[in-house]
Design a protein around this nucleic acid. Structure first.
Length: 549
RNA sequence: GGCCUGUUGGUGAAGUGGUUAACACGUAUGCCUCUCAAGCAUAUAUGCACGGGUUCAAGUCCCGUACAGGCUACCA
């Protein structure tokens, strides 16, 4: 029996040979330096912030080099897969403007390197597994779970390294005849790699982010084909990334330790080793302990958390970009007029340790981002958020579209726009008083001036003698000064601070009374602009209402 | 237990052997034709985890310790 025949018995009914597959998926014809990268999730239907970071880096690297970014579904673990999970992932990523130019789409596969779903590539994996068996670089293993558990226990007891290697690799030296006999007896088997590595030998490896490192060679005969016939991650990674002609494998740090396995597999398969970049995880502080952000424990791990909070997706991307390359912030500062996409991401500037997830920073970025938008854009985003999370308020926004846009425009179109809205779940809280419908059960906190007579004096004097909707801002302010002085208040803060005993208070106190009467709040944006929008009728109504209290 | 990696202010970080350790966030105070926000100004590090060593000179190179993270599955 030749080794080819033997391989055929172990992995029967394979349609094509590995040589044929190699021909089917030729080298890509891309310009020098173009990066082919991918996002390869398990279809769990859930994108978390760490995955989004990794995906973004993959996407951006391909894009900035005119390369290819594709989506591959890693569903070799059927237990973890969720129906429709991949569609959810595609939708979520689209919200962040992450789009694929190849791979799985909602309408099926796109591109010439498919199928892009691992469960549909069984024949391909088998073809390459056969090659390894024929070359005596892989072998069937009949060990049961219990066998392995026993070995593991003994290894722990003897303080030896755990794993299926060396003398623990019981099936490694089975002869072809012994194997055939076992198969004829109906024994189940998996395929393991016949490792040629020596744990006591080291090799150096260069990671694009972490730099040069030494690893011991892999001597474990790890599984490449599982009992369900599907490949393990390791094997699928080697075969797929080779055949799909991936140039850069950019993935989470949890894979870093698998480098000895992966490079060995590529070599044994005769593949060119791709470049690797391992991204350090996003960390979170939990009771004084830093740990990797976790989907299960941390609400902020789920991308949906930010959606609910109303942090714009673009702001999240800006934050992730600063996490990826901290000089991005400085670049933004110096290139305000340029498109964000012009920023070039650099592996060398990525953090080698875990980055603490900085929520305050995210909020700050979001606040700045929103402040640079046009009022109509803010309106659109606010409405979109309200439609899902605050339906009543959404109705108001829709009913008063133009008016609402004007509200969002207060102190916006100026060189230093106002920055008080950081996320859209806060919208109503920020502007509710601008809507008559919501201005019902208000209470007034008059701050410094508590005497009712004074309040009446200020409001009446203002409405009857000074207020005119047609005043421009300067006149409006001059009048405020004039009135303050007339009724015994300092017209400007300097005078008041110099001789407080000469006045009942200052223009600030007078303005405050008007502000509270009109909005019921002591902190608002520019009073003049608010009044302009409220209009004479509402202003009079609100003053009356305030006087009745 | 083993194998890798990391450790600069409250946080993210710049820094790759040589003056007073960038910058941003946060915090505090002050300034401003009204409040708040913004803006501006100022302040905010027991000398870069700790202990040794190399060097004329070390966050910056070497060794050890501590702490943290990842991996150590027929999961990805």
């Amino acid at each position: 029996m030749t080794r080819e025949e033997y391989a055929n018995i172990l992995l029967p009914n394979v349609k094509y040979t590995y040589e044929e597959y190699e021909k089917m998926y030729p080298e890509r014809n891309l310009k020098e330096g173009a990066i082919v990268s991918r996002y390869a999730p398990s279809p769990t239907g859930f994108v978390h912030i760490g995955a989004l970071l990794t995906t973004f880096i993959n996407y951006k690297m391909a894009r900035q080099t005119d390369g290819v970014f594709y989506l591959r579904v890693e569903d070799t673990d059927q237990k973890r897969s969720i129906d429709d999970g991949i569609n959810k992932i595609i939708e979520d990523l689209a919200k962040f403007d992450i789009e694929f130019n190849e791979g799985v789409t909602k309408e099926g596969d796109k591109g010439n390197y498919g199928p892009y779903t691992q469960s549909e590539r069984k024949d391909i994996y088998w073809a390459f597994a056969k090659k390894l068996i024929a070359e005596d670089k892989a072998y069937p293993c009949f060990c049961s779970e219990e066998d392995n558990a026993t070995s593991h226990e003994m290894q722990v007891q003897n303080k030896e390294r755990t794993g299926y290697y060396g003398k623990w690799a019981k099936c490694r030296n089975l002869s072809m005849e012994e194997v055939i006999n076992k198969i004829n007896n109906g024994e189940k088997y998996i395929i393991r790699l016949k490792s040629d590595g020596d744990f006591n030998k080291k090799f150096t490896f260069k990671d694009l982010i972490k730099g040069k490192v030494e690893f011991p060679e892999n001597d474990e005969d790890f599984v490449i084909i599982k009992s369900d016939g599907l490949p393990t991650y390791h094997f699928a990674h080697a075969v797929d990334d080779h055949l799909m002609r991936t140039t850069h494998v950019i993935r989470g740090e949890e894979w870093y330790s698998s480098i000895p396995k992966h490079t060995q597999l590529f070599k044994l398969l005769g593949f060119k080793i791709p470049k690797y970049a391992h991204i350090s995880p996003l960390m979170i502080e939990d009771n004084g302990v830093r740990r990797k952000i976790s989907k299960r424990k941390d609400p902020e791990a789920a991308v949906s958390f930010y959606h609910e909070k109303g942090i714009p997706n673009k702001a999240i991307m800006l934050y992730l970009e600063t996490v990826a390359n901290s000089n991005f912030e400085m670049w933004l500062e110096q290139n305000k007029d340029k498109d964000v996409n012009e920023f070039v991401l650099d592996f060398k500037r990525m953090s080698t340790g875990g980055t603490m997830f900085d929520y305050d920073k995210l909020i700050n970025i979001s606040k700045n981002y929103i402040s640079r938008l046009k009022a109509s854009e803010v309106y659109d985003l606010a409405l979109e958020h309200a439609r899902t999370y605050n339906k009543e308020f959404a109705k108001l926004l829709e009913k008063y579209r133009e008016y609402s846009i004007n509200v969002f425009n207060i102190e916006r179109e100026q060189k230093k726009p106002r920055k008080d809205l950081a996320y859209f779940s806060d919208t109503e809280n920020q502007i509710w008083y601008m809507y008559e419908e919501l201005f019902n059960d208000v209470t007034y906190d008059w701050q410094n001036i508590t005497d009712k007579k004074e309040i009446e004096l200020i409001l009446n004097t203002y409405i009857n003698e000074y207020y005119d909707i047609n005043d421009d801002k300067q006149i409006w302010f001059d009048k405020m000064k004039e009135m303050s002085e007339k009724i015994g208040y300092a017209g400007n803060m300097k005078d008041y601070k110099e001789n407080p005993q000469n006045y009942k208070g200052s223009i600030a106190d007078v303005s405050m009374v008007i502000r509270v009467a009109l909005t019921s709040k002591s902190m608002t944006p520019d009073l003049y602009e608010i009044m302009k929008l409220l209009g004479t009728e509402n202003i009079k109504k609100r003053v009356e209402k305030a006087l009745q209290v």
